[in-house]
Every structure is written in C-alpha cells, then in structure tokens.
Design a protein around this nucleic acid. Structure first.
Length: 562
RNA sequence: UGGGGUGUAGCCAAGCGGUAAGGCAGCGGGUUUUGGUCCCGCCAUUCGGGGGUUCGAAUCCUCCCACCCCAGCCA
C-alpha cells in the first residue's frame, strides 16, 4: 500500500503526544472518533478518522468509535448504521470499543448532582431569550441570573424534578456557575442540561433532560480514559470549559487538541449544505457519486487506500486551508493504476470495416490485464472484420501532432493489428457513418518486425461480440473552486455544474465485462477509471461510473495549438 | 485594550538559532503496444510587514497588518 512506503511526516499533534509521553502526563495513547449521528460521514470526517485511528496505530494505542448522541431531535438510527459501515470500509477497527454518549447518561447525571452540591451548578428559570440577553455580547459582559444563587437543596430538588418530567421543554435548564463577565462566552454560565421531551434512538423515553456538548463531551472522554481528545478548531474556545468541568470533578483529565478541518476545492463540506443537496434533489442521495461523502466516494469508485493516502498527504495543522481536489484525484489514480484491470470500452462508437479481413473470421487475441502488475495475467478479446472505435479518435483533417486515425494514416489497434484508413463514408447530412480500412496481417498482436513507426494506439471493440453498457460520466458538482463565491442574493447552489453527470447509454464494451461485479473497479483504456455501480449494475444491465479520468496530455497539446 | 487562533511557492506542508524538506499543480525532456504509467530536469536569495537581539533569524523579542472562530436550551 502506498501509504506504508513513504514514512509519515510529523505534525504538531504528534509533537504534543511525544511531550506528554516523555513528560509522564500519559503513559499510553488512546483516541476516539466521536461523530454525532445526524448525517453521513464525508471526506472531512475521513481526515479525522484517519488521524485518530492512525495515531492510535502509530503509538500502539487504541481508538474508540463513539457516537455523541446527546440530541434526540437531530439524530437517527439510519445515520448510526451508515457511519459504522463507512468507518469499517475505510479500513479501521475499534474492536469491542463501540460506545455511545447515551450509555453514560446516568453517570453524567450523578456528576451534575455532584457539581450542584459543590455549589457550582444551578437550575435557571430564565427563558431561552432571557438567557441570551443576560449573556451579554462579544464586547459587553453578561449579568447574573436572578436564580443563580438558589440553595443547594432547592437546586437538587428542582434538578431531580426536571429529570422526572415535571417541567415542559425550555422551562428550566441546569447551568454551570462560572463567570458571567468572562471574555470567553463559553464560560458565562453555560447550559449543562436542557429539557427535551423526545424519544431517543437508544434510550427511548427514559430521559427528558439531555446533556449539552460541553458538559457531556469531556465526561465521555474521561470515562473512556481517552488521553488525547482531538477535535476541530472551532472548539478551541471551549477548551477552558472542557478543562473546568473535569477539574471541578477531579476526574481523569484528557488533553483536548484542535486541528483545522479539511476544505476541498469544488466542494461544500457542511452537513447542512450536503443535506440541502440531497433534499432539494440536486443529487440522488447521500451516496450520489458526486457527493464528498464516504458513501458517495465509495460508489464513485474511490478506494479506501486512496482516501487514506490522501489523508496522509494533506497533513495536519492549525491553519485554515483549502486542498486542491486534484490531489485527491492523484491519490485515486495512483492507487487504481496499480490495481485496476484494463478493459476496452468505446463510449461513442464509430463503425470501422476492415475490407481485407476475412468475412466470417473471429480471432481471440490475448490482452494483458494490467501492465503495472505481472500477476494480473491476461484475458482474451475477440477481433473481427467489423469493429468500433472511439469517434473522437478519427479526424478527417488531422491537426498538427495528431497521431490517431485520419484518412491515409496508420494506427495500432491495441493488442490487435495496424490498420490504415482508406475511405470515409458519410450520410446525406455529412455525418460520418463508417470508415473503411485495411489491416496488416503481419502486425498481429500490435507489432511488426520491420521497425515501422506507428505512434497512435486506439482502443476498440468487435461489433458482433461487444456488449452494450451504460456509462455515467461525472465531473465536479460545482463550477467554481469556491462554491461560496456567488453574487449578491445567491447561494452556493447557483454554482452547481449542470454537466456534473452525463449518462451514456450506448457505450460498447468488450464481452468479458459482463462478468463485472458491483463495486469492481477497472481502467477503461485511454479513458479513465470506472467502477461497476453498487446499486444499479447487473449482468443484464451493466452500469459503470467514471471514478476519475486519465491524465490527458493530448488535450493540453491541442489547447496550446489553438 | 472582548476572548481565542492562524499567516512559509498557485494549493497543501516540513522546519523548533547554523543559512528554505516533500507532495499536488504547472513547465521542459526521455521511455512507452494506453498522448496512461514510469524516469530526468525546472519551479521561494526568501518565510504577512517594519524594527530589534545575534557572528548568524522563517525560527528569539517588539510593534503593526491581514484572515478565521465565538453571543444555540446544536455539535
């Protein structure tokens, strides 16, 4: 695997861990990936997953998979299942350490009681709007709630009655008693519990009070004896609160470390926006091959190895950045080049009749499956008098440096013969309908002894044996590197690429491709990497998704010629 | 004088006082039965800016500038 060859480079998190280990703060490394089950995982999560599981692996430690299911209003069982599948697919194993924040609700409750008894938490009757008012602003300090100094006994009683369901949603909250004048708004008596009378995917109706992230997360980490709690930059301001709760309780205290989340060109990454793409029908679902979700990329044909390699290459730092999508594509090509078997598929067929080839003869020619892998073996492809080539591979008037087919020119048919074009047949509209060529019987296999120079090599299929297949050509979902770059009054959907999906129902493939299994990846010679669709592909109706094109240096040359 | 962060090439990113790694993209060349792959070469006299310390500064000090995050009973 690619990522195992080049040694992984250092980053600031490893340096912190090294210091913690050397200084004795911890004697082991235990991380966790803590998704909220309120949406599908995307490539940004993949970065975090690779980071957390990768660190554990490198330091001979462990990494837990933990669902942060503290908000029953937003979370769903569907997402839990999808997330589990995706993390596994990426190649990571949490063994028996699959946890849920909801597993700790009782323990969290007891800790809250402890804080109340210490006089460090209180039940507040202020409404949500009032709490907001009392919080102050970025530049003005907040003011204390009139309920802030209730007695411990009253707080204990009220909190218990909150749990029992005696109050309606929003009627009361439990707050930490910290500092309403803090410059850090998170420290202005943050809410610890709110009342939500809703059924939870795992605890059902057992609870009607649910812990807030800041209160819950540190406890989850502490309970699981996590050493390094890695999260994204926006939680940097929350670290003082994370530390405060754990310090007050005097419990095991993990170290929170923040890193910059991944951004990719031509991509939106927020769950909210991805949800919009799905709900408003811009894509077919969370696993649409154009989505930056793990499920989408899987269906597109990206391999877990390529995604992991990508995660290694982008590094980990604290500076906000936008990674070039081309790097991801490079990783995909790099992996698939070594592993994907080659096949010939003509997307836009042009009929070629080989006049001097025996009428009813069919030859089975040998073709290597992968020039990058000797162990991939060979297969056989049929050749006959009538074949199809790619329409784009023929030009009536050849431009400079063109070494594909043109009148009077000779090219090589991959694995087959040299052919020369003699005649172009057109219909009444001037459309080319077929080509008449002659072949050189001496060039069987695609080579002659005489040292003749044949620069161009084309892929082709034999007309009688070719099978029709559907091919789905994907491009970036957005036209601009930064989809958010829009005019006044518009949003990112204004930048959606109308040509992000082009369906070709009339492609012709070499017959062996009828054996393809859903999810199987190939390189279609001279075109790109393709993957049999996970959902729609069948032997009766083959469907292939274009994962990524091959690099196309002819396109570059032609551009320069103009 | 609200708090917290970040600035190294077009894009990521190492670097931790001894004179700017690596990858992607791009450009030029070679090999090639995929205009693919592979191989070779080029691509920051300079690290957001000014000042200072030092024999020596991207690294230390200082002032300034730019950008990002925070006012959910979301995570």
């Amino acid at each position: 695997m690619a990522e195992e060859n080049n040694k992984k480079q250092s980053n600031f998190i490893k340096q912190i861990i090294d210091e913690d280990l050397a200084g004795g703060r911890f004697d082991r490394v235990h991380t966790r990936f803590p998704p909220e089950p309120n949406g599908y995982l995307h490539i940004g999560h993949a970065k975090s997953i690779c980071l957390n599981f990768g660190l554990a692996e490198e330091y001979n430690g462990k990494c837990n998979l933990r669902f942060d299911d503290t908000n029953p209003l937003k979370e769903d069982r569907e997402y839990i299942d999808a997330i589990i599948e995706d993390v596994h697919w990426l190649g990571f194993d949490w063994e028996d350490r699959l946890f849920f924040a909801s597993d700790y609700f009782e323990q969290m409750y007891q800790y809250a009681v402890q804080l109340i008894k210490m006089g460090k938490a209180y039940v507040d009757d202020l409404s949500a709007e009032e709490i907001k008012e009392y919080r102050g602003t970025l530049t003005k300090p907040g003011k204390e709630s009139p309920y802030r100094n209730r007695s411990v006994e009253e707080n204990l009683d009220l909190f218990e009655r909150m749990r029992k369901g005696e109050f309606k949603d929003g009627e009361k909250v439990l707050r930490a008693k910290i500092d309403m004048k803090s410059g850090n708004l998170n420290m202005r008596d943050p809410v610890m519990y709110r009342i939500i009378h809703a059924s939870h995917p795992r605890t059902g109706n057992k609870w009607c009070i649910y812990p807030m992230y800041d209160w819950a997360h540190g406890l989850e980490d502490s309970i699981e004896r996590i050493t390094h709690s890695i999260c994204t930059l926006e939680f940097e301001d929350h670290r003082p609160l994370y530390d405060w709760f754990l310090d007050q309780l005097g419990v095991f205290h993990p170290r929170q470390i923040e890193f910059a989340r991944l951004n990719l060109t031509y991509t939106v990454m927020s769950k909210r926006k991805l949800l919009r793409l799905v709900e408003e029908g811009y894509v077919s679902g969370w696993d649409d091959p154009r989505m930056p979700t793990i499920a989408g990329m899987r269906r597109r044909g990206y391999s877990p190895e390529a995604i992991r390699d990508f995660a290694d290459r982008i590094g980990v730092a604290k500076a906000n950045s936008v990674v070039d999508f081309a790097l991801l594509e490079h990783c995909v090509r790099d992996d698939l080049n070594k592993r994907a078997e080659r096949r010939m598929v003509v997307l836009n067929p042009l009929k070629v009749i080989i006049d001097n080839y025996p009428d009813d003869q069919v030859e089975e020619l040998e073709a290597e499956n992968n020039p990058e892998d000797a162990n991939a073996g060979t297969r056989t492809v049929p050749f006959s008098k009538i074949i199809y080539i790619e329409r784009e591979d023929f030009r009536e008037e050849a431009p400079r440096k063109w070494f594909r087919l043109a009148p009077g020119k000779e090219v090589r048919l991959k694995h087959a013969y040299y052919i020369t074009c003699n005649e172009v047949i057109k219909d009444e509209n001037g459309q080319i309908v077929e080509l008449h060529c002659t072949y050189d019987p001496q060039s069987r296999g695609g080579w002659t002894q005489d040292g003749r120079k044949v620069k161009g090599t084309l892929h082709w299929v034999s007309a009688a044996q070719a099978i029709p297949v559907e091919v789905r050509l994907y491009e970036h979902l957005f036209l601009k590197e930064n989809p958010e770059e829009v005019e006044e009054g518009q949003d990112f959907t204004a930048n959606i690429n109308p040509n992000s999906l082009k369906i070709i129902k009339t492609a012709l493939a070499e017959p062996g491709l009828k054996e393809a299994k859903p999810g199987q990846r190939f390189q279609f010679l001279r075109q790109g990497y393709f993957c049999a669709d996970l959902k729609d592909h069948s032997a009766e109706h083959p469907v292939f998704n274009r994962t990524v094109t091959l690099r196309d240096s002819w396109a570059r040359i032609e551009k320069k010629l103009k």
